[in-house]
Design a protein around this nucleic acid. Structure first.
Lengths: 353, 353
DNA sequence: GAAGATACCGTGAACGTTTACGCTAGCGAT
DNA sequence: ATCGCTAGCGTAAACGTTCACGGTATCTTC
């Protein structure tokens, strides 16, 4: 019986009649012996109320557990304290990490978040999701759009509200925040790491070109090689999955075309790739260096522990929230990109030659 | 330049004056030449409207893009169309999977979801989170509480609203839905699989006992062994992390106490464990069979591909949403637990003896 | 001691809905 | 012709706030 540590008696909820009427501003006013206007003033920290009254009202509020009704407030002010998040439905590492971070930041800033996720086909689902979000009374929307197709759908959709898109590599427009610079930088970092190790034949197991992330990471790899005066190595484009990487790597093994080093577009990609090598006696990092991207949970316990690149989701979330809330409140915020970090572990090693 | 496939011109949003006034029910009424009451009736599919009028109103609604103001509706009806989700802040596989599934189900049922995540210390954060959720006007709350401590905090918190907790192993009370049966069943399934393979010395690398999941999975392991007349093997309790599993397994290797088979409480645990073995020449599954739990993304590409147990998040979400919405609407729904599935891959193998 | 200023507080209207109720026109039955 | 009934529609009030005004006292200031 595992439940024994939990006090089952005496918990506060049961005694509460569920759904008893919520106290209103009028209840407070009556109890405090003032008018509802005064209560409203103390709620909003408005002036024109004496210290003693303010205190008295505060105490009543505390006592009866009054909480202001957001629907009523939203109705009359027509400004809201919640923001909508539109996300791709896939439970992938990047999007989910961003999502969690966004929620956290929003709450710290006093905003509630409403999340809606969409699936393909985006052209059909996005507009509806945006509308639903609008319906719920959010004051602004952040879109997490890792897929190019989804971003396009968002562009084509119409939306009254301030909207901001987190889409790596989409060029910035007035209402699109982009963190492309960082991902490309991350890819450069990864590639540069391999270059620094003395490798010259550096392949890329790219992600899906349907994803901004895939496109941008590839671009970073190309750029790093170009800047180093190296000619581009093998590049295969996949779908991020371990399966694809596995099979593609198998092919390479069969054809004996194994490069010196590989920049895998994601840790999951690296996973499949490493397995294919391991099964065929190709040692990582002795025979081939592999670097991933994401630093997913557990990547430090891959075989071998994976060298990879970590992005700062919280930094990104903080930044984009700042921008959106700024837009909602009519302010303007500057957008400094966030830098990713190289995490060196055991899957990469200096060139032997 | 990756952005070229995206039409940058002619997207619908820019032309819209951002934040132009939303049309109201009165605008519709005027355009349709009826009173707002009639419009309200067609909005709510109420009777007492002639077919022709209904049609005319519908067309106006469509034309001017009217959408009902949820704040106003919520204010007057005091019933809401959104539900709150309280989740543990950790981006772990189980909680996140459940979260995504919940959102999906809710939306299909016409409800918006507001997510709030809390961190330790729960005793302090949970009540506030519950209140915030209440503030946003949700009609009910689902708590994803994998941690015993968090569940306890929820129990001790007070909440006016229908509340339902997804907590494996917490005993069911009127407002707590539990899927413990399933997880225990999953653990039994895993252990039974090892037993069927002919193993008799079956260890358990347990998860954290702070988690319901950890407790319940351990319980399932014990039960399966007991039912098979086997005496319990080694059981070590950890924290789900690959790191802990790695170090603990290392210890086992040093002491030459490697069991025949191991039921790892999670795939991440299995990951660390397998690495420790691999580094020390202990072969999986030849020398030791390993089975995980979760079927996380990529577990089919571990070295070796991991035999594991998969839970149905969507089934769970569907079920608990059904129950909550039932509670919100005053109905009662039966609660049939969802069965987990064994996924057999390469990390387990018949006993050689 | 009157006039103006100031601090504090109450009041009414509005926000966009829903809901209960009331009204009218048309129709069938008497 | 009258009555009652019903279908279809309009109206008022209410939901819980915010906000712009107004109204009192009290306090200066001469």
């Amino acid at each position: 019986m595992t439940g024994t540590t939990i006090p089952r008696e005496d918990h506060g909820r049961a005694p509460d009649a569920p759904l008893r009427r919520k106290p209103t501003i009028n209840d407070v006013a009556q109890l405090a012996g003032v008018s509802f206007g005064t209560v409203s003033r103390v709620l909003n920290n408005a002036p024109d109320v004496s210290a003693s009254t303010r205190e008295r009202v505060r105490r009543v509020i505390e006592d009866i557990g009054y909480r202001r009704n957001r629907a009523a407030t939203a109705l009359v002010t027509s400004r809201s304290t919640s923001i909508g998040i539109l996300s791709d439905g896939s439970p992938r590492f990047g999007p989910v990490g961003t999502l969690m971070a966004l929620e956290n930041v929003a709450r710290n800033k006093g905003y509630a978040t409403t999340v809606i996720s969409v699936q393909k086909p985006y052209e059909e689902s996005v507009q509806g999701a945006l509308d639903s979000l609008d319906d719920t009374g959010v004051g602004g929307i952040i879109v997490i759009a890792p897929l190019v197709e989804m971003a396009a759908a968002v562009w084509n959709a119409s939306c009254r509200l301030p909207l901001e898109m987190i889409a790596a590599g989409a060029s910035s427009t007035p209402n699109v925040f982009t963190y492309s610079e960082n991902q490309e930088l991350g890819a450069r970092l990864a590639t540069q790491h391999l270059i620094d190790l003395g490798h010259t034949d550096i392949a890329h197991f790219a992600g899906s070109m349907d994803w901004f992330d895939g496109r941008v990471r590839k671009r970073g790899w190309e750029a790093a090689l170009r800047d180093a005066g190296l000619k581009p190595g093998l590049c295969v484009e996949g779908d991020w999955s371990p399966r694809w990487a596995y099979e593609t790597a198998l092919q390479l093994v069969r054809e004996a075309r194994i490069p010196q080093a590989i920049f895998a577009a994601s840790d999951h990609t690296a996973l499949g790739l490493i397995r294919a090598f391991a099964e065929n006696g190709v040692r990582v990092p002795d025979d081939v260096s592999v670097i991933g991207f994401d630093d997913i949970e557990g990547s430090d316990y891959f075989l071998p522990p994976l060298t990879t690149v970590r992005q700062g989701f919280t930094g990104l979330a903080l930044m984009s929230m700042e921008v959106l809330i700024g837009a909602m409140e009519g302010r303007d915020v500057d957008r400094t990109p966030i830098a990713p970090a190289l995490v060196v572990r055991d899957s990469t090693k200096p060139a032997t030659s």
